Simulated assay, not measured.
Amino acid sequence: MPRPSLNDLTAFVAVATHRSFRRAADEIGMAPSTLSHAMRALEERMGVRLLNRTTRSVSPTEAGFRLLDRLQPALVSLDEALDSVAGFRGNVAGTVRINAPRLAAGFLVREILPQMAERHPDVTVDIVVEGQLIDIVSCGFDAGLRLFESIPKDMTTVPLGRPLAFVCVASPTYLDRFGEPETPDELQRHHCIGHRMPSGKLYRWEFERAGQELVIGTNGPVVLDDEELMVDAAIKGLGITYVADWAAELALSDGRLRKVLAEWMHAPEEVAIYYPGHRTVPPALRAFLDVVKELRRK
């Protein structure tokens, strides 16, 4: 059997991953009809059907899934091998487009970008703040940054090395005046600063203790869609708020806020950079990931 070309195998991985000839064609810069013909030629060359096609969808066959499982790590290893000699070509240059929520974007600016600017001055890191989880490939991003559990399973991940936890916080002034809740149910008699999600819905506060889980709808004088503003509102004594600890850490450290219901909070969650592993990783993105990995080890 003639050996398929690397281009054909890469194209198959794109189609099998996206389950769409159109999205795969956009990624690899090929017309959908040309890509479809290339996949039929690949199947004929290999003597096995790799894709199930209908007028509206495409999905791997059992043989296609088996080939996809073996090809994805192989292509990643090939990309890494090629990138390992990139340094011999001179300075890494290019643009890395990253999609991230506001708090995570702030972490990148404070912790990652100074190292990138020092080591790779010819790389531009273009960060777009986005509250909703989007398809980074179809939207033209090289990578995204999210909680690990919300990252699509077909993506390659690089843990950021700093978990994120959620905390309930209030100012000492507020707690002195209204008292401290001992259980989540007691929040019903407190002023709570609401969080409006990107979807427009109000976030319901989630708690867990000894296997018991509670989801609480809250009421209060203020509803905001930005966690840093929620922290500011809590500092001003407007009520209790429920935010990521990254947003509240400075105010907690200097005493402007105090944690409440700490024993009811969920365990910290891992945050990770993610990117499509079946694609060739550009040198600029590889340089960015290397900085993330090095800082994680410190």
Rank of each mutant, 00 (worst) to 15 (best):
A284V: 09
P32Y: 03
G106S: 04
E186A: 15
A74M: 13
Q72L: 10
R256T: 09
A247T: 02
A165C: 03
I112D: 03
V48P: 00
V137I: 14
A287L: 08
P4F: 01
S36P: 00
S138Y: 02
D126T: 06
S5V: 00
I28R: 12
S59F: 04
L51T: 00
P283K: 10
L175G: 02
T218M: 13
V223K: 10
G64P: 00
T156M: 13
A93V: 05
V281Q: 13
H190R: 14
V260A: 09
H190Q: 14
V109M: 12
L224G: 06
D8Y: 03
V243A: 07
E227T: 11
S57Y: 10
H18M: 12
R204N: 13
E213V: 14
A41K: 14
G161P: 08
S20K: 04
R89E: 10
L187C: 11
G94T: 06
D226F: 10
I240D: 00
T17M: 07
T10N: 10
R66N: 08
A247W: 05
L252T: 03
P32C: 05
F207A: 06
P73M: 09
T34M: 02
T54Y: 02
S150H: 13
V271D: 03
S150Y: 11
R177M: 05
V231Q: 11
A244D: 07
V281N: 02
H191I: 00
T124D: 08
A14L: 05
K201P: 00
A81K: 10
H266G: 08
S77Q: 13
C192Y: 06
K293F: 01
E186H: 10
V260I: 15
D26Y: 09
G220D: 07
